[in-house]
Write a protein that binds this DNA or RNA. Structure first.
Length: 148
DNA sequence: GCCAACGTTGGC
DNA sequence: GCCAACGTTGGC
């Protein structure tokens, strides 16, 4: 079963928000490479929940996919921060999916810590200049991070 | 707030 | 198709 990592700004949706809600729609992905990964996710896949653009960037917990990709409604909503004027109901290039809470780590695994772990050098997250917000995590990378 | 790195846009 | 300008991401 594939594993993933997805970034979220905790001010928008944190692992603790997801814990409180139980489940949530993961939307607003506006990058084609990230979207393609979203589209290849399947129900049951696990992902690391990464907190970005915050005081303590890092992996904050784990979530699970509970509904595979469907057209992202925020692209069609003029009120949404993620509104895309070029999208229509017929032609919506963006995808969302539904996720559920699995686990919140007792402490965030900081980005600096991740950089120091051997075996993660191929993970886009730790590569200089990478801004990819959704990425695959290999079985060995997953195990390495889970062992922290 | 700064700024490096990247993706997207649009003129040509 | 090239590439400069611009906007965004995201750590620091």
């Amino acid at each position: 079963m594939p594993h993933w990592l997805m970034k979220s700004e905790p001010e928008e949706l944190s692992i603790h928000d997801l814990q409180r809600l139980g489940h949530a729609r993961w939307d607003g992905v506006r990058n084609y490479q990230a979207r393609n990964f979203v589209r290849s996710m399947a129900v049951g896949d696990l992902f690391f929940f990464y907190h970005s653009s915050c005081p303590e960037p890092g992996i904050a917990g784990v979530g699970r996919i509970i509904a595979s990709a469907y057209p992202d409604p925020t692209a069609l909503d003029p009120q949404s921060h993620y509104y895309d004027a070029k999208a229509s109901a017929d032609k919506n290039p963006w995808s969302a999916l539904d996720v559920e809470f699995v686990e919140a780590f007792p402490r965030v695994i900081a980005l600096g810590q991740l950089r120091d772990l051997p075996g993660l050098s191929e993970l886009p997250l730790v590569k200089k200049g990478s801004r990819l917000s959704v990425m695959p995590v290999s079985a060995s990378e997953w195990a390495t991070i889970q062992a922290v």
